[in-house]
Design a protein around this nucleic acid. Structure first.
Lengths: 285, 285
DNA sequence: CTACTTTACGGTATGCGTAAGCATT
DNA sequence: AATGCTTACGCATACCGTAAAGTAG
């Protein structure tokens, strides 16, 4: 069996034209290459080179061999990358979250159940979650709608309501409930990674000015020391994790309430059985 | 770059199930295999094996790797065979002859002009010579008809007439010429490798009994010591290489006369230019 | 007790680099 | 002189086999 080392050297010589140049590229000495190429010819029992006293070039067969060698080398590299990718796919679970609160709740559960696996989380609007699951980009997803594709398996795993958080001086803070239209035009402090909620805001309060904060720490910092209203959610209110000195008013629009669904490929539901067994309607609350 | 040696060993282990068995097949010691497989895992940085104290088996990734390795190994073997076949094709000329006399004449010419090349001759009925030239099975052919395919290049290179050779006592020996129908029913001594002539005989003298001789020496032996008529040809008569004590009578049927054509691919006529230049209408005569 | 794997040890062959020589431009 | 290939020589490492130990059936 011809070793790939020799083919690599042949291909490099073909590319660079001289043994010296090839040797430099390959980080080996030039005499070593001389020997290797001779060995290759010996093993094949075929003349691959035309030897001048001071010059080496490939025969027609040599050229053909070098080109074929390149193909083989590419496939050999594929071998490594594909095997690594396959192994990785066996040991990692990629999860798509449509909002931050589901991630907050599910992450510890998943880490616990699938300890030893690498968990890779992704948060964004969930328009393409169905496709991503079908394509194997995600193994699990939390959506804010119940998927209808019959190749997908899903279970309701909680819900969330949006609230507005006002500082005490704000006149809106005294309403028992509010609607998004009441907020349109306000300047509102907002965290950037909020999944599908972002779409909803853009749509329902097009005239509001959102002060986007990428980092949670700076978001809290600014919220604590300013009068800007912010969004909060039933999740935090249920846990009394609200900002001190702020008043939370429920948003009554239907768009400000959502159910959440845990989704996987129907063909893989066995694999994620434990997780589905633990999860119920009140998991995210 | 992963060396094929390791992949070969992996594939063998996959096939035979234990290191010991694989080692035996590979003609190496079993501890060597242990190390190789460990090395393979190291180089990939991936677990391929599940190790019990007394048992070794492949992980899912390991199985995948072994299967992929098999593909690579097959391609590597292809490399060798294809390169060798290509090299051979550069150094050999395969020639199809439709009859023995053209071979007698052309062989020395071709050997002379293409010295250093391996010449491979083949004689049979020329029905498929056009296809075989187009497919690269032959580089040259001698046909007994002028090919019409425009991808082929041809030149008339001679002709041949058949004669019957009778022993002196035979009454047919005194005719100035004969027709095949006059021979139908006779027992005739015949060499087996006579190309397209065989078809003609079968067709025109269906009732003759042919005493087929495979070896030329036994053909001559029997011809010399028996009364059986044989075929001979203008080629031998022109050279006075006829059998002693025999009388040769020309066969007057049109089927017993043929022209010969030297043929090659039109795209390769340059390559065989010298030969075509030497050859003319009287080369085979 | 047999079959299999792993570890340890020591030898050898294979591959490599340096040095030197020769030819070509 | 500079560039490029080959040969010769000595070394390091990588690979291999034998021996031995441990474990499971």
């Amino acid at each position: 069996m011809i070793e790939l080392r020799l083919l690599k050297q042949l291909a490099t010589f073909y590319e660079y034209g001289t043994l010296s140049a090839a040797a430099e590229v390959l980080l080996i000495s030039q005499p070593t290459l001389t020997r290797s190429m001779k060995q290759l010819e010996d093993e094949l029992g075929i003349k691959l080179f035309i030897r001048g006293k001071n010059h080496l070039s490939l025969t027609a067969t040599g050229v053909r061999a070098a080109e074929y060698a390149n193909q083989l080398l590419n496939l050999a590299e594929d071998f490594e990358t594909k095997i690594k990718a396959y192994d990785r796919s066996l040991h990692t679970i990629s999860i798509g979250y449509c909002a931050p609160v589901p991630q907050l709740v599910m992450m510890p559960l998943i880490n616990n159940i699938f300890s030893g696996m690498t968990i890779s989380s992704d948060m964004k609007s969930d328009e393409k979650f169905e496709d991503n699951l079908l394509q194997g980009i995600y193994q699990l997803a939390i959506t804010h709608y119940e998927p209808e594709n019959e190749k997908l398996f899903s279970k309701k795993c909680g819900s969330e309501s949006l609230y507005m958080s006002f500082s005490q001086g704000n006149p809106l803070a005294f309403y028992p409930q509010l609607y998004l239209k009441d907020l349109d035009g306000l300047s509102i402090l907002l965290l950037s990674q909020i999944g599908f909620w972002a779409d909803m805001h853009r749509e329902k309060t097009p005239n509001s000015k959102y002060l986007l904060q990428i980092e949670e720490s700076s978001f809290i910092e600014i919220a604590a020391h300013s009068e800007y209203p912010t969004f909060t959610s039933s999740y935090f209110i249920n846990r009394n994790e609200t900002m001190p000195g702020r008043i939370n008013v429920k948003l009554a629009d239907p768009e400000c309430y959502t159910d959440y669904y845990l989704v996987c490929l129907d063909s893989e539901k066995k694999k994620y059985e434990k997780l589905f067994n633990i999860v119920n309607e009140n998991t995210i609350k």
